[in-house]
Amino acid sequence: MDDLSRRQCLLRAAALGSVGWLGTGLVHAGGQLEEPLADSVRTALSSAIANSAPPVPEFTDTEKRLAYLRWMSAMSERLKKRKPDFQTRIEFLQTVWYETRRAGLDTTMVMGLIQVESAFRKFAISRVGARGYMQIMPFWSRLIGDGDPGKLFHMQTNIRFGCVILRHYLDRERGDTFMALGRYNGSRGRAEYPNAVYSAARNWVPPAA
């Protein structure tokens, strides 16, 4: 996310205040819509999913490493009630941090999306069959995975699929996060879902340096 998109995201969230996914009563569970993919797009997405590099953070300088450690500490504290087990919590956060950067996404926005989609529940299933943390529709396993939708409950697999899919939608929408989030939810052009994600993202803004 570029600086302008980030500012737009935070401004929308600030305007919404404390109204969130569960508080509006207006947003309903959705799911990505299956659409034809060009062969080149399918190949690129499949390649992005298949690269199974472990989520090990790498840093080019000390300041970036310190920023990461500050982020981990702050997010771990905020997530404690939802994920009481320390090791599970750290592995989840490290994976989100790694996969969002791998896909070129804003980590704060993705944390908000996960809160809205699954409330950080690994085995969440929506009424339309979307699965896991980022509520991936099973057809994606057939389109760009190995055809096994059961793997969508694996933490890193689910988060990688979600980040790659969201990156795809952002590219299709020329960087417009509002429209891309609508695509992610299957409600493109409607405000409820993007606004819910923007609002939830306020809970995961990193601490100031």
Rank of each mutant, 00 (worst) to 15 (best):
R160A: 02
L166Y: 10
S199E: 02
V41L: 12
A67L: 14
R78T: 04
G25S: 05
R202Q: 12
A44M: 09
A103L: 15
W97G: 05
G129A: 03
L93E: 06
L66C: 10
E117M: 00
L79V: 03
E173I: 12
S52K: 11
S76K: 05
D61S: 10
E173M: 11
F161N: 00
K80T: 14
D2Y: 03
R160D: 03
T95F: 05
G186E: 04
A200W: 04
L16W: 08
W97R: 07
A48W: 04
R65Q: 15
F120K: 12
E91R: 13
R167L: 10
V197L: 04
G175A: 15
L152P: 02
S5K: 11
I144F: 02
M1Q: 04
L113I: 02
E99M: 15
I90Y: 10
A191S: 15
G162K: 00
L166Q: 04
Y68L: 14
R174F: 08
L105F: 01
G17E: 13
F178C: 01
T95Q: 07
R70P: 09
S5W: 05
R12P: 00
E192R: 11
L45Q: 00
S47W: 13
L45A: 00
V41A: 15
Q8H: 15
A201R: 02
N203I: 08
V27H: 09
D2N: 15
F123W: 11
T95A: 07
T157E: 10
R70H: 12
A200S: 07
S76D: 15
I136P: 01
Q32H: 13
R202I: 09
V19T: 08
T95G: 07
T24D: 11
Q135I: 04
L4R: 14
